[in-house]
């Protein structure tokens, strides 16, 4: 079998040799072909060129005036006024500098105003605390007539609501006296930390704890406990005036 494969391989190899020789023999030298046809010079239509040259659509390199919008006219007028104010030979250097500073200040003010940011925010990067309108609050402590509400809740034996009203009244009194700054987003502990006087802070912290247990914790209280709590609030409020 191996001999047969060897013989077959030799026969195939011998068969390729004459082909490679013939490939060398058929190669012919290159021959250059001469082009003897007549050359006709082309010319452009001068009239068509002139027409295109006069067309404004093809005036790429030249500026052409268009009507200015009112916004562009305003700024043109503004910068003319500004440059004349700064370079006026009749005005003194001081006047020119002052007018430039006022103008720059005005521009900065307008930018800050329209961006809605505070001046401090530009330097600190902190968000400005926007005083919120009392009308946004669900319970506007400055509009509630507390005493009748407390009386009504007490008569209905709704002592939980009565304590809530007592606490809101206390916050109003603290706000009116300037001890705290009332904001709808402030928590009770924020108000406690705003109080500077140590005794007042302790008393208010205690009242806050009572309010939180009764209001958020829904602890039930009876009339005797409510009477004692009411007295605590009364004593605290009297100390504010």
């Amino acid at each position: 079998m191996q001999k047969f494969i060897l013989v077959l391989f030799l026969l195939l190899a011998l068969g390729t040799i004459p082909q490679s020789f013939s490939a060398v023999n058929v190669k012919k030298p290159n021959r250059i072909q001469l082009d003897s046809s007549l050359v006709v010079a082309k010319s452009f239509n001068q009239a068509a060129l002139d027409k295109h040259r006069s067309d404004s659509d093809f005036q790429y390199g030249e500026k052409y005036q268009t009507a200015l919008s009112w916004w562009d006219r305003f700024w043109k007028w503004f910068w003319n006024q500004f440059s004349s104010a700064v370079s006026d030979s009749t005005s003194s250097n001081l006047a020119r500098n002052v007018s430039a500073i006022i103008l720059a200040g005005l521009i900065i003010f307008l930018v800050i105003k329209f961006s809605g940011a505070g001046v401090l925010q530009l330097f600190t990067g902190k968000a400005r605390v926007v005083p919120l309108a009392y009308a946004e609050s669900l319970d506007n402590i400055h509009e509630i007539d507390f005493d009748p509400e407390i009386e009504k809740a007490t008569q209905n034996r709704d002592y939980r609501l009565a304590v809530r009203m007592l606490y809101l009244k206390c916050l109003k009194k603290l706000s009116d006296a300037g001890f705290i700054s009332w904001q709808i987003d402030k928590t009770n502990s924020a108000y406690i930390s705003e109080l500077v006087n140590h005794d007042r802070k302790q008393q208010f912290a205690s009242l806050t704890r009572q309010f939180e247990f009764i209001w958020y914790g829904e602890f039930n209280i009876d009339q005797s406990v409510f009477t004692a709590i009411k007295q605590d609030f009364k004593d605290f409020n009297q100390g504010l005036s």
């Binding site: 319970d139 809530r164 809101l168 987003d185 928590t187 009770n188």
Partner: peptide
Amino acid sequence: DVVAQIIQKIEIPR
């Protein structure tokens, strides 16, 4: 910062 801004917008229930 954004969480603080969000909370600032909402009234504390009392």
